[in-house]
């Protein structure tokens, strides 16, 4: 159960072996193994407090103060999208996008990235002048402008309303199809996971307990019986009692 259907992709982008993370006496990750292929879109589900963010922060190298061990092999070029857009309020939108992009053609690339997320013309706006969804799109542009090999996203759409979230799904799928980064998307939304991912993982007790490849025809929707079957089994793995059809 804990091994994923190997050989999907030959090139590995992420390799994690025996990852352990501890907060005080509480072990959150307990010998976790994970591999992600190049360009593979992986969604990570799990109950609240199961360690999803802890895992993602470990991959992003943002947990220097956390006790633990294990092997983490991630590409140098990786980007993070946080749950909040995390734009610097004192920088214009364009400057936020190209923050940390040392290339001389940074402004052009930033403009292009903003156009990709549908925000052409808002380059000189202040972040607070954008709506929540627009801010999150800027964050996406910032994450993708450096052409990362790995995109790490921790509930990036968690704060958005349902309709905006659906739009963001389309956008994210489109962007990933174009840029082909490997993606690890943390979410608590099973539908989101089944809609977007090539593979869905469930984390429980500090390990990956479910690893399912999602094999669905292109416009994925609730109307596909297979969709519902995936949804059903993932909900079950998450221990959700549900009676709705």
């Amino acid at each position: 159960m804990a091994t994923h259907p190997g050989g999907l992709t030959s090139t590995r982008t992420v390799r994690i072996r025996g990852l352990r993370r501890r907060f005080g006496s509480r072990t959150v990750l307990d010998g976790l193994d994970l591999e992600i292929g190049a360009g593979e879109f992986v969604a990570l589900l799990g109950r609240s407090g199961s360690g999803k963010s802890t895992l993602l922060r470990a991959l992003a190298g943002l947990d220097r103060d956390v006790a633990g061990s294990g092997l983490i092999d991630v590409p140098e070029k990786s980007s993070v999208v946080f749950q909040d857009a995390r734009l610097l309020p004192w920088q214009h939108v364009l400057d936020n996008v190209v923050l940390g992009l040392p290339a001389p053609d940074a402004p052009q690339r930033g403009r292009a990235a903003l156009a990709e997320v549908g925000l052409a013309g808002r380059e000189q706006a202040w972040p607070h002048q954008l709506s929540g969804g627009e801010q999150q799109r800027v964050a996406l542009a910032r994450a993708l402008v450096s052409e990362p090999e790995l995109l790490l996203a921790d509930e990036p759409f968690g704060a958005l309303d349902a309709l905006t979230r659906l739009r963001m799904h389309d956008l994210l799928r489109e962007l990933c199809a174009r840029h082909r980064p490997a993606v690890l998307l943390v979410t608590h939304d099973v539908d989101e996971a089944v809609t977007l991912a090539d593979r869905v993982l469930v984390i429980d007790q500090g390990r990956i307990t479910v690893d399912t490849a999602i094999d669905l025809a292109a416009p994925r929707s609730h109307r596909q019986p297979q969709f519902l079957a995936y949804r059903e089994s993932l909900l079950q793995a998450l221990g959700v009692d549900h009676t709705e059809g």
Binding site: L62, S79, D84, G100, P102
Partner: peptide, 16 residues
């Protein structure tokens, strides 16, 4: 501190 974290995640050089 979230901005500091952002800086780390973007691998900003100290001067930047």
């Amino acid at each position: 501190s979230r901005y500091v974290e952002l800086g780390e995640s973007l691998r900003l050089r100290p001067a930047v």
